[in-house]
Design a binder for these strands. Structure first.
Lengths: 210, 210, 210, 210
DNA sequence: CATGAATGAGCCTTCATTCAT
DNA sequence: CATGAATGAAGGCTCATTCAT
């Protein structure tokens, strides 16, 4: 949690600090990221940095918080608040699409998130149980889907929720590479998402009855 | 490539070095891994380390090579050499199962591999184009499956190959956490793999015809 | 080029750093010179050193720059700017004398300069083409001398310029040894320089016409 | 002084060691020269090196001894043994020419000698009073020359002997650069030496009586 | 005598953090 | 609240020399 001095800062300066931090953390691992560089790029004194944040981790956590906030903005809140009024695959599609939109608009935040994924220790310190929340969300979706008769009733919710979460990662990975759009041979994001949904709906086995 | 001195080393000492290295690299990122710690844990002088390896990267590459060799031992070579004689889902199941077995037996090597995934620069230096090879493998599997009429002919091979690769990662991630078995609520590996194969075959949508 | 922090340093501290550096570089080759020793003798932390200079070479270049500046102070600028108004041997004498005065006042800088002479690679990095400038200076002097009829017109300018430059080194070498005055059996600098000039003017062959 | 084991070595192996040492010392400063490299290039074990020589310095001194021996081979012994039967300038020319011939035939030994010149501490340890011997030689030459009436009787022998020695260095420096012949614009060695002798005989002042 | 593995002191450099002004 | 100089722990790496076989 940043210090009070940070929140009392002029909007402009606070933005410069955040911008510099995002730039540094998105291009370097947590440990290789240098607060010296951040201070320089933000145009503040190195000492000032420690007036705003307790230490490097304090800043990083703050950046992650901002990232989570930003991510939430991309989720269709109306839809999510009324899960029961929508079909399972519609909700899943919207979930995936919101992730793609976020990634497209915030490539640097995406890069930071991906890096965090690869550092379990840090993730535990910073995220706590965020991952569990994500899984819970998918589980909830699945349960409703089953209840409404949209999904096979004998699926393993624990497993499938993890697969859906994993597929979301894959999707992001496919659509964006190193912060750059990468749609070689893939029509467009919407098309990809649709195909993924279809994959999840029906699998890939040839249905001989057709 | 380690120096000759390394290969001339007594079996016992070489093992200690490798063990210490695997321990260090599996618990620290490449950059945070300390050769000082490796030397200490292996019971050799720091200077000796540099008689065996050119530098830190030389050792790391060697560990990766060992990992790749180990991984190959888990793949059913007979089956893979006669792809056309087996069904697509059978091959996929075997592929996934071999990964699970490797992970179960070599949790530390798995951890190193996962870390490498998160460091694209290092990966490029060490792996070259191994990732592409993996994708090519899945593509080949898919093509044969379509030809043989096992799979829907209109699937997007490029996309699905990436999904299958991603699901493999998810699988490993589900079964093992931080090098520790994690089968809470999940019957067993075989069961999980079977369920995943089923997921990929048929999807999760309720088939009302049944 | 030292960093800004260096130039912002208190006069006193900057002097201590430079003094320690000159002491170290004048008594050790560039590669044997230890920045650890310099930091210790300057009474600063090793880390502080790197706040002032990028690296060892940065410091060394700075010392060389200071040496060049100091050397220039000893040259009679009025005389050199009006080469044509003075006799060749008068100019040569002044050139040699300025070198002697510099060496006498700055024996440690002299030692550094001599060491640099022996490390061609370093010299190239630090000096660029300074050596050529020195030769050009002597050549210019010789050409003017010939034009004015003071010198034999058939001398090999290329060769003689190198000899004059070499004699200058010899002179410095004679007058100062390891930073200590060494006038054993030699009256005084002025006397030596006069004798050298005479040597260059007339040679040492007995003139039987006299 | 090398150990007895060294002198008992097979001619061939001893030669390989010396060759490797000369190669290393001629291309690196004494401190940067690596005995590891010497052992490798000589095709001997590093441990063997220490069976032949006490340490690095022991080897270096030996190389210098060999260099001095080699240098002596180039001096016209007959002429030097009968100094009194030859003219001063004839002897000086021969002295200089022998130096040029040595340099031409042994560029690597020359390089080692030049490096040694730049390391006074090492020079003292290795050469002891060799430099004094050189100066004594020139002094003797000068004294005989004066006695025989060839030279001006009022020259400062101490000074001139050093100048003649210095000019010899200049000559070598002019003729050979970095172990490579460098006669740009200079007719040939003999021509240069003749011009230098002329320079020493008559100086460069225009003689108006001519 | 040959061998080559083992050693460890020591070097340069980096960087998060502190602290006096 | 701003500043930026000061700090020092720590890391990777080099190499002459020793020593057991």
């Amino acid at each position: 949690m940043p210090k009070d001095t940070y929140f009392n800062l002029a909007e402009d300066k606070r933005k410069r600090v955040i911008d510099a931090a995002i730039e540094e953390f998105s291009t370097h691992s947590y440990h290789k990221a240098r607060i010296t560089a951040i201070a320089e790029n933000a145009g503040i004194a190195k000492g000032s940095f420690y007036q705003y944040f307790k230490d490097k981790k304090d800043l990083f956590k703050h950046i992650i918080d901002l990232t989570v906030d930003k991510k939430l903005e991309y989720i269709n809140q109306d839809m999510m608040k009324n899960i029961k009024n929508h079909g399972f695959f519609q909700l899943l599609q919207e979930t995936y699409l919101s992730g793609v939109r976020f990634a497209k608009d915030n490539p640097r935040l995406l890069a930071i998130g991906v890096k965090l994924t690869n550092n379990k220790d840090l993730q535990r310190e910073v995220w706590g149980d965020q991952q569990d929340k994500t899984l819970s969300f998918y589980k909830q979706l699945l349960e409703v889907g089953i209840t409404k008769g949209e999904l096979e009733s004998d699926i393993d919710i624990e497993l499938v929720s993890r697969l859906l979460s994993g597929l979301n990662y894959s999707l992001i990975d496919i659509v964006y590479k190193d912060g750059k759009i990468d749609l070689d041979g893939l029509v467009n994001e919407k098309g990809i998402v649709d195909k993924m949904i279809s994959f999840i709906e029906n699998g890939i086995k040839k249905n001989n009855n057709e």
